[in-house]
Design a binder for these strands. Structure first.
Lengths: 113, 113
DNA sequence: CCAATAGTTATCCATAAAGCTAAGTATTGC
DNA sequence: GCAATACTTAGCTTTATGGATAACTATTGG
């Protein structure tokens, strides 16, 4: 288990998973999959106040899942697919460890029938 | 965006993502990838009190990520890989929608060079 | 220039989350 | 049967999260 708690809250994966835990934020990620958008463009689809929505954007940004950039008075947001891949990687790691386990189990049962 | 907020907190995906948001719970999932274990066996690896740890197990169980079963005084836990696949599915859906978008974009740019 | 637009900051509030201790309930080994 | 084992339940505390409002700071478009 090699002391996982060494990362209290920093830790990339941690922030990414935490960001995806909220349905609003997952919806934003989904929406940004269809291309970039400005803050108010994105906010239109959600039944919450702008400042509340902005908080979600900030969480997404500090998690690295989105990147934003302000031009004039408009802030544009876009998805950062690499960060999403991080989740993929974690999943793959679980799968690998699971497979390794069943492999060992198989080897064992095959050795002594 | 078809009103995502119709699901306040029930909603399978929601609970799965929320469950994975905590590092302790992710570590448990990881550990269970190497095969089932009893509550105290699992708890040994973590620096928190047993009741606190049990809460995590309950969250994991109600999310469907693990299944548990009590035999005598011992409760055994095992990973439910299908639920983990749900995350995979979500990721795949994002990728699909992203690809669809870039495809349309490509088609457009190719049509009018 | 000035009004509308697009964010941003600052507070505040309610609830949920993660942790703890203490005490309780079954099971099991001797 | 009785002590140790293996959880469970109950209650409490602290902090984080998700939401709101009000007021503020740029940028435009006309």
């Amino acid at each position: 288990m090699d002391n996982y708690w060494a990362e209290p809250d920093r830790g990339e994966a941690n922030r990414v998973f935490a960001a995806l835990a909220d349905p609003t934020r997952r919806a934003v990620v989904h929406r940004l999959g269809a291309g970039p958008g400005t803050v108010s463009e994105l906010a239109r689809d959600f039944p919450i106040a702008l400042p509340s929505f902005m908080k979600h954007l900030r969480v997404l940004e500090t998690s690295g899942l989105i990147r934003t950039r302000k031009t004039g008075r408009v802030r544009s947001c876009e998805l950062n697919r690499e960060r999403l891949a991080l989740v993929d990687d974690w999943l793959a790691a679980q799968r690998r460890s699971w497979e390794a386990h069943t492999d060992r189990l198989q080897a064992f049962t095959e050795e002594r029938p």
